[in-house]
């Protein structure tokens, strides 16, 4: 038994390095996608202190909007790359409208309430989006318009370590786009006027207000940014599997990523996502059979829990200072 737990998996790893690399790669890829969802959470949490449960459904909703617009265009005989990008623009527009609505209808009246109330309010948003999305777009899974958006398909097989490692091109694209987006966000936060305002709001709402930063405006911007991140995440997830409300479950996976990285840290979301993704796949592949399989569903949470016991604020979170 102990041999099976502590020695055998490592022996397997050494004996079949190509399989290990394949597993690692799959872990990294799902890690990138978890990280993207977590990124949306972090953006909103930093700027408004709202733990946005609706991020997961925003991913589904934005992807559905994109596919829905494209389907509408092609039914009018307007299809191809131009239509796809127009649909993309329109979907981004919808996310902007959503951000404004959320700010106006939900956040503004609840501004001084405790965190848990705001958390519950995002649950309400989730339900509304699920109901609205199902009524408008229907519940059946849809094909993501990957080709029209110039996303590659197929796979690259690399011969290494005495075996074939197959990398999906879409996964490579996802990794590249995710990195670009993270760099873009970092620049936006560090270099632009609005980025500075965002960081000021994250530090202290009152201080930001007193130097003339409009909280309402910042919140719209942040929710819009989170919406854009959701859109990109939705495209990437959708290109790997179909676009459907099943994606919602994946969003729950972003929670351990968040606590691992810390709620307020953008790099934390990335590193946490990669750790969870890789840990989950390795655990499932090498240790899963010992427990009867399916441990992927809770392994991420347990990894996060163990990390939390050592660092209660997550890996990169702000140090928790408690005062009386």
């Amino acid at each position: 038994m102990l041999y099976n737990i502590f020695i055998d998996p490592f022996v397997q790893m050494v004996q079949m390095p190509d399989l290990l690399v394949q597993t690692l790669w799959e872990g990294l890829v799902s890690g990138v996608l978890y990280a993207l969802i977590a990124l949306g959470f972090v953006l909103i949490f930093k700027a408004s202190g709202v733990f946005n449960f609706a991020q997961g459904i925003m991913v589904v909703f934005s992807a559905l909007t994109l596919v829905g617009f494209y389907a509408k265009f092609s039914s009018w005989g307007f299809s191809g790359h131009a239509a796809a990008f127009l649909a993309l623009l329109l979907a981004a527009g919808v996310m902007l409208v959503l951000a404004m609505l959320v700010e106006r209808v939900v956040l503004r009246p609840l501004v001084t309430q405790p965190d848990i109330i705001l958390f519950m309010a995002t649950f309400g948003i989730t339900y509304v989006l699920i109901g609205f999305g199902e009524i408008v777009f229907g519940g059946d899974p849809k094909q993501m318009i990957a080709n029209e958006l110039f996303l590659p398909s197929g796979s690259v097989d690399i011969e290494m370590l005495g075996g074939l490692v197959s990398l999906q091109k879409i996964d490579i694209a996802a990794a590249v786009i995710a990195s670009l987006m993270i760099v873009g966000l970092a620049l936006f936060f560090q270099k632009t006027r609005i980025g500075r305002a965002l960081r000021a709001v994250a530090d202290s709402h009152k201080a930001a207000l007193s130097v003339g930063i409009s909280l309402n405006q910042i919140w719209v911007i942040v929710w819009f940014a989170a919406g854009l991140v959701a859109l990109v995440t939705g495209i990437m997830w959708g290109a790997r599997s179909d676009v459907s409300f099943a994606l919602e479950i994946v969003a729950l996976k972003a929670l351990p990523v968040l606590v691992l990285g810390g709620f307020t840290s953008v790099p934390g979301a990335i590193v946490g996502g990669l750790i969870i993704g890789v840990g989950e796949k390795l655990g499932e592949f090498y240790w899963g059979p010992l427990l009867g399989g399916g441990i992927e569903s809770w392994l991420a949470y347990v990894i996060a829990l163990v990390f939390l016991l050592y660092r209660p604020q997550g890996l990169f979170g702000d140090k928790i200072i408690e005062r009386i």
Binding site: V106, P109, M120, F123, G124, Y127, V128, I130, G131
Partner: peptide, 18 residues
């Protein structure tokens, strides 16, 4: 109806919280 229920319950949650 099922979807409408979702929509209405979600809206009511927000409404009650406000």
């Amino acid at each position: 109806v099922e979807h409408l229920t979702y929509l209405i319950v979600g809206a009511l949650i927000i409404f009650f919280l406000i």
